[in-house]
Design a protein around this nucleic acid. Structure first.
Lengths: 159, 159
DNA sequence: ACCGTGAGTTGTACTCTGCAAGTGTCAAGG
DNA sequence: CCTTGACACTTGCAGAGTACAACTCACGGT
């Protein structure tokens, strides 16, 4: 299966080194994905990974539409709709009709949402910091940059 | 909320730069995690992300116990049990009693499993390669290294 | 006013997951 | 040999997350 002539030397990319790296990246990213939920559940039972990310995005963006969330996370709009409904019932997000378009609802964090998010963020950050404690600042920054670059890929519906 | 004195300068880690990087790492990793399933489903409907990772681990490890899988992926043993059952019924993995311990079942890829895994791997790799095409080999290697290092963390209850 | 498109909701079904309880096996002590 | 506790699973149950399809409501152009 690894027989695909691993050094085509196309452009700058290339030899089997890069091939192995790509392989590693996908494997490790996948492992991470598999573990993320479980650890999130253990780390902050009050807020699922999904809820956390949605709240986080709302905070970052300072309010956005459900459709934006769906696009950003490659989720079906129905899924987002339900998730948002839960968060709304929990009093963590509020909806406000868009004055320019009655179809649209602007979603925003409530004060409660902001505070829960803050608490969870602190816990998560502590865990991450511990985990990344022995990383040099340079490595940390570079790693962060790579992740951003990776996720910036505009793939149709993928991440 | 972010008032935790973001530059405690403890040890070598420290200033707000590192703090921001940690923040970014967790956010981006989380985003990735959120998207991974969706993309996996679209990329290879024949094999869910879970199944894929389990098969992958079996191939890497050359056969292991269900408990090992559970530990590695921080999954409940019951979950693994069911997943394995499905994969077995699909003819992708086989079980063999451990000669040394009748409680244990050694899980192994079947030929079919190996071939499906190979096919999916090729597809995944192609997608990843495309995505990572404009990365320099150095960045790629370093990124891969970071991910490995990150995942190597011996999380409690995680593997 | 009519029709295609976009935002969001709801019905339905399925997968993944964990917890708790149960079975069979091993290893150590009586 | 027979308990007792630990380990490797398996099964019953319940809940979360998700997608797809069908529906409503609003927008924009014709």
């Amino acid at each position: 299966m690894e027989a695909e002539g691993s050094d085509e030397r196309t452009g700058g990319l290339g030899p089997s080194v890069a091939d192995a790296a790509v392989e590693t990246v996908q494997r490790e990213m996948t492992v991470f994905a598999r573990r993320a939920r479980a650890s999130a559940g253990r780390m902050h039972p009050e807020l699922s990974l999904v809820s956390y990310t949605l709240l986080g995005h709302l905070e970052e963006s300072g309010g956005c539409r459900a459709t934006d969330l769906a696009a950003h996370y490659a989720l079906d709009k129905s899924t987002v709709s339900r998730q948002v409904a839960v968060l709304e019932q929990a009093g963590l997000v509020g909806r406000r009709p868009d004055p320019d378009d009655a179809r649209v609802q602007i979603l925003e964090l409530t004060e409660a949402g902001r505070s829960v998010l803050a608490r969870v963020t602190v816990r998560r950050r502590a865990a991450f910091r511990e985990r990344l404690a022995d990383w040099s600042e340079e490595d940390l920054t570079r790693f962060a940059g790579y992740l951003v670059r990776y996720n910036a890929w505009p793939e149709p519906g993928d991440g």
